[in-house]
């Protein structure tokens, strides 16, 4: 995937910023691009595939590179900080003191931003604010998805534990659940934990 978007609004007197977004998920990439386009005068390039990442990023000589902190290919970007050829520009992760608050906010939002040396914080801020807001939404969705999956897993384990109790003690489903819940309360643990322990133990005995 290799998309290019040009932001048409000439709000600044200076050259438009070039922003590279490293993101494999096409939908997420498009959402981030749309948000950034609204934030100011910039050209946004999305790079999805990770092979030769540093070289492909350097070819765009970006002012800002944005990548999800959870992305394991992020270490490939570290090579950018070593750019030393005459045509390459060094990129640092927020070296200037003025941007350190921004850097912290970005890290907490789960985003890493590499910024070319000397880029003024007032030019960077609207972009990062937008990116941070966008990443917040993405991370929230991811957390909700994980929570849903976990709840589903737990329900499966509880069902299996109920089945074991029904078989072993000859009780009905409601009673089996009551036994589980009482054990959980007595031990100060969650029902799902007790169910998990029972299923594991039963697996060892069978």
């Amino acid at each position: 995937m290799h998309l290019q978007h040009f932001c048409g609004l000439l709000l600044f007197m200076s050259e438009p910023l070039t922003i590279v977004v490293v993101e494999q998920d096409r939908d997420r990439a498009l959402a981030i691009v749309d948000a950034l386009k609204g934030a100011g005068d910039c050209e946004v390039v999305v790079i999805g595939h990770s092979s030769g990442l540093a070289r492909r990023i350097a070819a765009h000589s970006p002012d800002v590179v944005l990548i999800d902190i959870e992305n394991p290919t992020r270490d490939m970007l570290e090579e950018l900080t070593l750019a030393s050829g005459p045509l390459e520009r060094p990129v640092a992760m927020f070296v200037s003191g003025a941007a350190s608050g921004l850097a912290r906010a970005a890290v907490e939002a789960g985003i890493s931003a590499y910024v070319v040396d000397g880029l003024r914080p007032e030019r960077l801020k609207p972009i990062l604010d937008t990116a941070i807001a966008r990443f917040h939404v993405v991370h929230q969705m991811r957390a909700e998805l994980a929570e849903t999956r976990r709840a589903l897993e737990e329900r499966k384990v509880i069902d299996r534990a109920k089945g074991l109790i029904m078989k072993a003690r000859g009780v009905n489903e409601d009673d089996a659940y009551a036994i589980l819940r009482k054990a959980a309360m007595d031990q100060g643990r969650r029902v799902a934990e007790v169910a998990e322990a029972l299923v594991t133990a039963a697996g060892l005995l069978s």
Partner: peptide
């Protein structure tokens, strides 16, 4: 940590 650079930042920013 998913990468060394992220781990370095986690220490530097006190996470």
């Amino acid at each position: 940590a998913p990468s060394w650079s992220s781990l370095r930042d986690m220490v530097a920013f006190g996470k």
